[in-house]
Design a protein around this nucleic acid. Structure first.
Lengths: 218, 218
DNA sequence: ATTATCTATAGATCTATAGATAATGC
DNA sequence: ATTATCTATAGATCTATAGATAATGC
């Protein structure tokens, strides 16, 4: 179970040589355990032991259990992919953009940190948190803005639904695959499945929204 | 907080008049609390108190905390919507079928029981459970079968992706909306948003997959 | 003196059990 | 006698604090 099993220290300040970044190690262990077992299911004892410390050493770094949970959430970082949207060059055509955007999201979400972060969010009800909801809505609006321009320019179909609905049709399946397959406890196989599902959906979506070559039945 | 506040009983067997179905009331309270706070975040004390009992009265009905959690999961019932698929008449056209199927799923998922069930699944990691994954895959396969037939018959587009990918493109956004908006703590407004999102997506999907009227640009 | 650890412990809370008590149904 | 409740309590575990100890950096 214990990923990080440094030897238990003796009393007193540790020698310079063996004095690692304890605080960072604690946050790391906390992130992992909270994501796995939730807030109530994780004791500060378990966190301290994972790093090879006594419980009270933890209290020298964080004033309370809540504080270390908050620290873990901070390093987990933002859960949504607004950044990926801003970073994707919109110059290319719709299909290329959709592919590039999805690739960025998939890469960002398949890091160990991001996988633990989503576990944390799911376990402790943050998935029903207003902050997360606003983040998602922001990402949807950003994507909808891009789609709205393309609809105006006649580069994607205007008869399917609102730009917002289109954005949802692209993003939701990707987000769903993340929840099901890019979490902290996912095996390499599950992660591969999730990534394939994401890119496959992006391709399907790109084909569905781009204006079909007009004329000629069959 | 307490939804069910019957008066606390005295010692001894309660009179027939005030002897409700305690076991059912316990499971009900347990489902609500486990969904809200997770397994570790819910004490048997809290469950008993919610029903107006002492902790030990609970142990007369269930041998352990785990047992009452399992009972709660059983009444929560299956999480996925294979039933909805079987119940939807496939005789109608693709668009009608997609609409009818989605309506059934939405209705099934917006019951208080189903909303608590999804909270339970999310909170205690069942979302990453193999059983649930198999249920989802089963629903996807069933839907994919319907789509495969329609593709053969030329009633929906064959150039978007595999029947499985199509099934995912329809189901995942609906499942995602459920997670975000049809859970135990969702307000009426959030639930309405989620339902609208589901039906809007079904409409978009139906338009995207049906074969476009051929011929004539613009 | 400060920092980072330890041991020991207080006080709360948690699961579970033992034994008492009172209504029910035979 | 059985059933459904209670009170009391054991024993484990949890968060948090107090005070000791030893290395560091001035």
């Amino acid at each position: 179970m214990t990923t990080n099993d440094r030897p238990r220290r003796g009393p007193g300040r540790p020698a310079k040589s063996e004095a690692g970044d304890t605080k960072a190690a604690l946050v790391d262990a906390a992130l992992r355990l909270f994501a796995q077992n939730g807030f109530a299911g994780t004791s500060i004892r378990a966190i301290a032991r994972e790093v090879g410390l006594s419980e009270s050493a933890l209290y020298a770094h964080f004033p309370s259990k809540k504080a270390i949970h908050e620290a873990a959430m901070r390093v987990a970082g933002p859960l949504v992919a607004v950044v990926a949207l801003e970073e994707t060059p919109a110059g290319a055509g719709p299909a290329e953009f959709i592919r590039a955007f999805t690739d960025r999201v998939v890469t960002a979400w398949d890091t160990p940190r991001a996988r633990q972060a989503i576990g944390l969010a799911v376990r402790d009800g943050l998935i029903h948190d207003d902050g997360l909801k606003e983040g998602i809505d922001g990402a949807l609006r950003g994507l909808a803005g891009v789609f709205a321009r393309w609809i105006e320019e006649g580069r994607i179909r205007d008869d399917l639904g609102s730009p917002e609905d289109l954005a949802y049709a692209l993003l939701a399946p990707i987000a769903h695959a993340r929840l099901m397959g890019l979490h902290g406890e996912a095996t390499a196989g599950q992660r591969g499945d999730a990534r394939r599902r994401m890119t496959a959906h992006a391709e399907l979506f790109a084909r569905a929204v781009t204006v079909p070559p007009s004329g000629g039945d069959r």
